[in-house]
Amino acid sequence: MKIKDIVRILNAEILFADEKMLETEVNSACASDMMSDVLAFVKDQAVLITGLCNPQVVRTAVMMDMVCIVLVRGKQPDEIMLKLASEKRIAMLSSPLRMFGACGLLYEAGLKPEG
């Protein structure tokens, strides 16, 4: 699945991503509001799905070399978060869906935790 597929499936708003990033392949996903849970999970080309909205979400994704962050429940990042994401070239999306719904749709579309 590509980042552009996530945008479509989750009806997401693109807050940061260029054309090239939208074509990036995503192999696995991790969903949590606790960053240490995310940090316990290592997979390549992963997407982070979270209801948490602060700069440490982006830092966590950076440490994990994640390629995309999806903020659920329509959360909007502040300027610091967006700047960090663009510096590190991590796609930032916001979906109106809740966590469970977002995860369910991505799983159904073929995205698995194992990658």
Binding site: M34, S36, L39, A40, T50, L52
Partner: peptide
């Protein structure tokens, strides 16, 4: 803020 799950030192 997303921390305090008690997984830091184990990680």
């Amino acid at each position: 803020l997303g921390f305090g799950a008690g997984m830091g030192l184990p990680n």
